[in-house]
Design a protein around this nucleic acid. Structure first.
Lengths: 221, 221
DNA sequence: GTGCCCACTTGATTCAGGTCACGGTTCCGG
DNA sequence: CCGGAACCGTGACCTGAATCAAGTGGGCAC
């Protein structure tokens, strides 16, 4: 999105901008896009792959802040700070574009649409945090997680119902604030109820509507 | 930058701006500053009093999103949307200033400091959501809540250790995702341990450092 | 092949916090 | 002065998810 905006821009502006845009990758699974305390002021747009945001551990427990898929923008959470407060780790082979934030601001000044888009993205992050903050059951969380993940895969051209979880059970648990064992148990429960097919990290959502029903408290609004 | 339109300079603009700022109040306890679904596009700055943000109920349970004290800005969460997704309710006699968002944007365009401030505020909201999303014990949450509230009172010129909770136990619980009874129990436990004085809604933080210690997991970072 | 490591599953047990039930206090209108 | 309505405190009990503790199975090095 940001990318296509930049490319359709006027000539001189584009030339200046291209110096501030940089394609990066491939990152292999486990490699860092950036680490905590590195200077921020850049945004990354995922082109291919998947990235996990990891906040510093709290008493020995990893905190996963988000998973970013192709098209998603990484770095907005640090927009107000000088340094990143979190690590960004590739979970699978990943390619990104790296933008200097100043360049985007310069562009946004001429194109309100971009700036509006950035605000919308920030709003979405805030919304995601808020939703996660409320207290929902393990089943509700995981059902919503699966449905939402499917919707996001669909948005980047993949199937909404058949996909690979690219993250471990532990990652999911650390994101949803559940123990790894609970994630495991709920997934098998869903399989027993014919809601999903499950084989290692391959999932198929068999009863999308029923899953959406289970996750509704999180999914609506 | 946020909404590029008027870009003139000088005093005329300022005069025009004053038309877009409006002092409002007093609101009495229980009165609404605005309700869900009202058009957004305005920010409120609390001048005096306290405001509760209330999201729509999830299965009969009220969701409190935030408490805003004097100096705090209300409405940032809705800047990306056309309408508010939540109610804003005064908990006590409250006065505010109401700003047209477009006016602030116009001003921000000439003064990067303002825009930076807005981003910082948004970042702070995001941070608060994130922190609340993690899984902490009831004692940790309530200790952090008290300490943080004190710090915020201090910032608007009141005591950081002796103050009135202006919200009910139920409000606190709905904010921290705890049952009302749990809030009550933890507060009495804190009193028994000489961490606080407690009489109805009057609190005194007796052992600030120990409280901070208890709430550290939430307070740090 | 053999052995090791890691992710995952599954069962048994524990515990923090929710739920339910009740009693007390304060405030307010009539 | 009385009655009702919030709000608050406390006890008894229950439950969902964490924790503890074994397994299982696949991938990879050698």
């Amino acid at each position: 999105m940001l990318q296509s905006e930049a490319k359709s821009g006027g000539g001189a502006e584009l030339i200046r901008l291209t110096h501030l845009v940089e394609a990066r990758g491939p990152y292999r699974a486990g490699e860092y896009l950036f680490r905590q305390n590195e200077p921020s002021g850049v945004l990354f747009v995922v082109r291919y792959g998947i990235v996990k945001i990891r906040y510093p551990e709290v008493d020995g427990r990893e905190c996963v802040g988000a998973f970013y898929l192709p098209g998603d923008v990484i770095g907005l959470r640090a927009i107000h700070a000088r340094r990143f407060a979190y690590d960004a780790v590739a979970l699978d082979t990943t390619y990104v574009c790296r933008y200097a934030f100043s360049a985007i601001c310069a562009l946004a000044e001429r194109r309100p649409a971009i700036q509006e888009h950035l605000l919308r993205l920030l709003g979405r992050e805030l919304h995601a945090s808020r939703v996660l903050a409320a207290h929902y059951s393990a089943e509700e969380r995981i059902a919503a997680f699966l449905v939402h993940l499917g919707e996001r895969y669909a948005r980047c051209g993949q199937s909404a119902t058949v996909f690979q979880l690219r993250m471990s059970r532990a990652d999911i648990g650390n994101y949803l604030r559940l123990a790894t064992e609970t994630v495991s148990r709920v997934l098998t429960r869903f399989r027993d109820r014919q809601l999903i097919h499950l084989k290692a990290r391959s999932v198929e959502l068999l009863a999308l509507e029923r899953l959406r029903q289970v996750g509704r408290p999180l999914l609506t609004y």
